[in-house]
Amino acid sequence: MAKIGYARVSTIDQDFDIQRQRLQAEGCVIVRAEKASGGSREGRTELATLIEFLRKGDELVVTRLDRLGRDTRDVLNIVHECEQRGAFVTILDPHVSTRGEMGQVILTVLGMVAQMERRFIKERQREGIHRAKSAGKYKGGAVRVDHQKIRDLSASGTGATAIAKAIGCSRMQVYRVLSSKKL
Rank of each mutant, 00 (worst) to 15 (best):
R8Y: 06
R8M: 10
V9G: 08
S10M: 04
S10G: 12
I12M: 12
F16M: 07
F16Y: 11
Q21S: 13
Q21M: 09
A25H: 11
A25L: 11
C28M: 10
V31C: 09
A33M: 11
K35F: 01
K35C: 14
K35A: 14
G38H: 00
T45Q: 13
T45M: 10
E46F: 00
A48G: 06
I51S: 02
L54D: 08
K56H: 13
E59Q: 15
E59W: 02
E59F: 03
E59R: 10
L60D: 07
L60M: 10
L65N: 05
L65W: 01
D66G: 12
R67T: 09
G69R: 10
R70T: 02
R73T: 08
R73D: 01
D74E: 14
E81G: 00
C82A: 15
Q84N: 09
Q84E: 11
G86Q: 04
F88Q: 11
F88S: 11
V89H: 06
T90E: 08
L92F: 05
H95D: 05
T98I: 09
T98V: 07
M102R: 03
M102I: 07
G103T: 08
G103I: 07
I106C: 00
L107E: 03
T108F: 01
G111T: 03
M112E: 01
V113N: 03
V113W: 02
A114N: 05
A114S: 10
Q115F: 04
R118Y: 00
K122Q: 14
Q125G: 07
Q125N: 08
R126M: 13
S134C: 00
Y138E: 04
G140N: 03
G140T: 05
G141N: 11
A142L: 07
A142R: 14
V143Q: 15
V143L: 15
G159E: 07
T161I: 14
A166H: 12
G168F: 04
S170A: 09
M172N: 08
M172P: 00
Q173H: 01
V174K: 10
V174Q: 11
V174H: 09
L178C: 10
L178Y: 04
S179F: 00
